[in-house]
Design a protein around this nucleic acid. Sequence first.
RNA 1: GCCGCAUUCGUCUAGAGGCCCAGGACACCGCCCUCUCAAGGCGGAGAUCACCGGUUCGAAUCCGGUAUGCGGUACCA
Length: 496
Amino acid sequence: MSKPRDRIAPSPTGPLHIGTARTALFNYLHARHTGGTFILRLEDTDQARSSIAYEKDILDGLHWLGLHWDEGPEIAGEAARGPYAPYRQMLRLPLYEAATKRLLAADMAYPCYCTPEELDADRKAQEAAKLPPRYVGRCAALTREERAVCVAEGRPAAIRFRVGTGVVGFDDIVRGRVEFDVANLGGDFVIVRGDGSPLYNFVVVVDDAAMEISHVIRGEDHLSNTPKHVLLFRALGHPEPRFAHLPLILNPDRTKMSKRKSQTAISDYIAEGFIREALVNYLALLGWATGTEEEVLSIDEIVERFELADVHKGGAVFDRERLEWLNGQWIRRLEPEDLIERLRPFVAVQLAAGRIDWMPPDDDLRALLPVISERLPTLGAIGDLVGFLWVHELVYDTGLLVPKRWDVATAHVALAAARATIAAVGAVAFEADELEPPLRALAEARDWKVGDLFMAIRVAVTGRTATPPLFDTLVALGPERVLIRLDAAIERLAHA
RNA sequence: GCCGCAUUCGUCUAGAGGCCCAGGACACCGCCCUCUCAAGGCGGAGAUCACCGGUUCGAAUCCGGUAUGCGGUACCA
């Protein structure tokens, strides 16, 4: 048996959607697991809604996720890859025309001259009669003469495919046997618009046939289109591919995930600092599981374990909390240099937003890694976590300097004493291990709770009540700035 | 309306007739660790397996029906 050929066929009418990314991932997983070929095809026949910016967003997103395709369209000056080019539907128009002609010649399709008004009236009448909407077949049996009249009148002709009668069935890999009575398909459906442009349900089949796609893996929302596709494959004289309809990703209210109710653009997740390993891992686990208790898996481990037959049938609610947890898991698994590399753009964003005053050198970031990696649910959290390290002036509420058990005077005395203690440690010995003992001793000598003393110092040097461990933070700041900030805090308290 | 698909803790899921009065993970709660916040460890709470009926010595697992939800029903993709 020949190797599988799987494809993702996004339409550039919006940014890369979580659902498209998941479908792409499952196609990729199936191709890689079986040693097959993963193909990218751009479905850009909806010219009105397609844009090059969306196309770029989609391609970049797929690349970012690591879903590299074996065959695909030309992009940014790079030639198309693969023996079935072009991989962009607007460039394949002649193929659809040829297929249309064949269908027309065999009378498996026919021109339809119905106007939108007529169609609309039909639909309304059916609705009023509580009948399911379907094409009434007005043009199905036009004589040569009648057609000639329409042509002479210059009426545009859409092309309709004859659905015939009977039951169409197929064996869906995830759902099993699915059957539809052709009578419920809504009548002969349009495959080419009046303006000559072909429709999705048609081109998808022409292309899947031409590209020898063996497995059509897509969202469940396409399940009811499948009988039309099966009919078309047969009419075109091409063997049908296997179908696998994936469960939908859902909004919290269990409706199909949508922009209205959820964050759906992959680029938004990237911008927040989710990393590809986590997103891929999370998406793979929506609708599929290994059957073991393994959950944190690399894409290669998933490829190894993936089976289409193990995919679920029921929809899955997108759970951001779980994604965040996985993101943390993966951030902690990154090699230090890799993490620095990925963190840098997020620090740059802070700088550009004016939330920090300078860009820290990599050495500074590297030194921080041990204390920040377990505190980053997303890379974008870096600013909130340690942005105070890279600003000239701290902005905070003076009241924070006074722990609950203390009054202003105590805080003032304590910070002054802490300043002296820290100064006494000196720049040469400015290490966490050298700073902690004397400050603990100070608290003990004055009968202060160490937590209170440390909290006052923490706020004085960071402006925040939640930070990485205090002594590591002091070291990261360096002796000069620690003393300057302590002085500033002491000054504040003097006036409080 | 019609057609189709689905239904195990709040969420993601394990489960393919006895191992399940249902296991894991996220979230939640408590404890431990602890200078705060995390991370980590331990523990807890949380599912009459949608419902009803059948098959069977025995059903979350098989069969039928019902309910609910979702998807589709375009000269969108």
